[in-house]
Structures are given as C-alpha cells and as structure tokens.
Amino acid sequence: MDEDRLYHDPELADFYDLENGWERSPDFACCKTLAEGAESVLDLGCGTGALAVALAGGRTVVGVDPAPAMLAIARGKPGAEGVDFVEGDARTLRLGRRFALVVLTGHAFQVFLTREDRAAVLATIAAHLAPDGRFVFDSRNPACREWEEWGPEASMRLVDHPRFGPVAAWNDVAHDAATGIVTYGTHYEIRATGKRLSAVSRIAFPEKAELETLIAGAGLRVDRWLGDWEGNDWQPGTPELIPLGGLA
C-alpha cells in the first residue's frame, strides 16, 4: 500500500474534515449507537479523529492511523486528550489489548488493495476484539459502480477553506476491470492564488463473497450484513457491504 498524499500531505489533509462532515454522517451516528455500553473502543483508520473524540468520555478509546498529518489534526481537536492516538498500520498493529468494539469506517478498508492485505487487517481486528466484543467496517458494493459518479463534471464543487478562502475542488477517476481497483485523483485549486494541490489514490472494491471467506478465515463471525449505515439489511443493489459481528 503506497503512501497517499491525500492523507500524508498536511495541506491536503487539512481539507478532510471540510469534505467529509463526519458529525452529520449516518456511519458516525451508527457507531455512536454501537458504542453505547462498550467500555473500550478501537478506531482503526481514525483519520482526523472526529469519531474517536466523539466516543471518548467514560470509556477507553484508542485511535490508530498510519498518516502523521491526519493524527496531528486529530490531536489538536477539542476533547482529543480523551483519546490515545497511535500511529500504526492496521495490517500489522498489535497493541496487546482487547476492546469491546472495533470500528474501521469511512471506507478505510478499501485502501487495502490485495486479498492478503485485507486478510491481515481482519486478523488485526480479531487480535484486538474482546471475547464478547463486536466489530464493524464498511466497503462499497462493487455492483453499484459508484466510481462512475466521480468524474470531473459530476464532482466539481466549491470548498470554503478557513485559511485559503474559496477553493475549487474536483476528482477524476479510472477503473481497472481486471483488478477491480479504482484510481482517482483529488484536486484543489485555491482561487486567490491559483495554487493547485493534487493527490492520486487507489482503492479496491472486493466482492461480498471474498469478504465472507476472509472474515471466517480470520476467526470472526458476522451476525448481520447491513446494506447501508441507516440500519437496512444487505441485499443485491444496496450501496454498502457492512458486516457487524464478533469472534467466531
């Protein structure tokens, strides 16, 4: 997995919260509900820490991310002192601790491009899950071909950055049918100066059948497959693949 400038470059990472609006998202709300009654939470791929900080207070929360630029933003958030932020790779992380809830949201699972990498991440989840704990992660349903909506015209938008002012933003995208990997560019052009910031990212779209095999191989079980973060069950054509379960 190559280092992605979208998360590792401090200037680009500074756009993450503006673009994602975590506190308004259904995955944010769902994870808060799942955390009720959980005395400890591990947030893998915690990014800028919005979810981890929201879950802190009255429980142990550890947020893990491989990108120092994202963690720097996370540690500067109000309430960040309630979270133990750790720089680490979800494929190899071993904290020697177990948690009541392990979450991997924001489609972070899709940055793992090979079957072997995905198996390693699931092994990490299993290694950190308490005997009666639960896990949840999300991956876009490849059948929906969401990447087709990520072209320059459809993705063109204006972002109001607190330091840069108005910033034009857009994406471009290419899909490799042989591997299922989508390569997309993210571009920001600062209106005041004309400066452009760009990054190229790659994500995978594994099929549900593969996820089922890998999850079982990691010693995990799925109690329920969700098709979206609003709590609807998975069925062909739903936008998400969201397994919710525990140790087998």
Rank of each mutant, 00 (worst) to 15 (best):
D84P: 00
E3I: 14
E207L: 12
A13M: 05
R202K: 15
H128G: 09
I203D: 09
A80E: 08
L44C: 08
E207H: 14
A52F: 08
L101N: 09
G82S: 10
A204P: 12
G194K: 05
R91P: 04
A143L: 10
D138Y: 13
D172F: 13
T60H: 09
F112L: 15
R115F: 00
D132R: 14
E39G: 15
T33S: 07
E116V: 10
A178L: 14
A52I: 12
P78W: 01
L197W: 04
L158E: 11
A126V: 09
E19H: 12
V111K: 01
D14Y: 05
E230T: 15
V41E: 11
G45W: 08
A204D: 13
H175L: 12
A248W: 06
M70Y: 01
L6E: 14
P162M: 08
W150N: 11
A56L: 05
D2F: 09
V102P: 06
L113V: 06
I181N: 13
L34H: 06
D233P: 02
A90H: 05
R98A: 02
E212A: 14
M156A: 15
F112Q: 14
V167P: 06
A216I: 01
T179P: 13
K195A: 09
A80H: 07
V121K: 10
D233S: 10
G45N: 06
W229N: 02
M156I: 07
G217C: 11
L158C: 02
F28D: 07
A248P: 08
E210I: 15
G151K: 11
E189V: 15
E3N: 06
P243D: 10
R224N: 01
A119P: 12
A56K: 06
T60Q: 13
V102L: 05
D117G: 13
G58M: 10
R140W: 07
L55M: 12
R24N: 06
T105S: 03
G165Q: 08
A154P: 02
P78Y: 00
I242V: 14
G45P: 07
S198P: 03
R97Y: 00
V182D: 13
N171K: 15
E210N: 15
I203G: 10
R5P: 15
T213K: 14
G165R: 10
V200W: 15
K32R: 15
E149I: 03
K32Q: 13
E212L: 11
V136W: 03
W147N: 12
D223K: 01
V159N: 07
K77R: 14
V83S: 03
T179V: 13
M1P: 10
E39R: 14
D65P: 03
R157P: 03
A50Y: 01
A127K: 02
N20L: 07
E207G: 09
T114A: 07
Q110D: 01
R75P: 04
D117Y: 04
E210M: 15
A177H: 14
G88A: 02
C31T: 08
T33E: 12
V159C: 08
R24G: 10
Q110L: 00
P68C: 02
D132T: 11
A74G: 09
D132P: 00
M1S: 12
L93N: 01
R134K: 06
D138H: 11
P26L: 03
W225Q: 05
